[in-house]
């Protein structure tokens, strides 16, 4: 059940970033989050690079979910 919740959240967050509902997140989509999230352009770029494991310039839901999963396992959520 925890896994399902995690997948649901990852999906929800993916939708926030995938503004045009393309099915992937491009670098410019990430930069549009600047202003919505308290992160600098530089930090958003770094997030994108970290999540984009294969470095093809597009973030798929799978890559996004993997990153989110790593975050959940590496960080305690209060």
């Amino acid at each position: 059940q925890g896994q399902q919740t995690m997948l649901g959240k990852a999906n929800e967050f993916f939708q926030i970033c995938d503004i045009e509902d393309k099915g992937f997140i491009a670098r410019c989509d990430m930069q549009r989050l600047h202003g919505e999230l308290p992160l600098s352009q530089e930090e958003l770029e770094k997030v994108f690079d970290t999540l984009d494991a294969d470095g093809n310039g597009f973030l798929t839901l799978e890559e996004f979910t993997t990153g989110f999963s790593q975050f959940l396992h590496g960080e305690e959520i209060p």
Binding site: F13, L37, L39, E43, K46, G67, F68, F71, E75, I77
Partner: peptide, 29 residues
């Protein structure tokens, strides 16, 4: 290691990002 400063590592930035998304979802009415 100068690249391992707290908060500037990939993990730190990623944590920041997801925490922001979490609070965005739960913090707004």
């Amino acid at each position: 290691d100068p690249n391992m400063k707290a908060g500037t590592t990939s993990e730190g930035v990623l944590a920041n990002f997801f925490n922001s998304l979490l609070s965005k979802k739960t913090g707004s009415p």
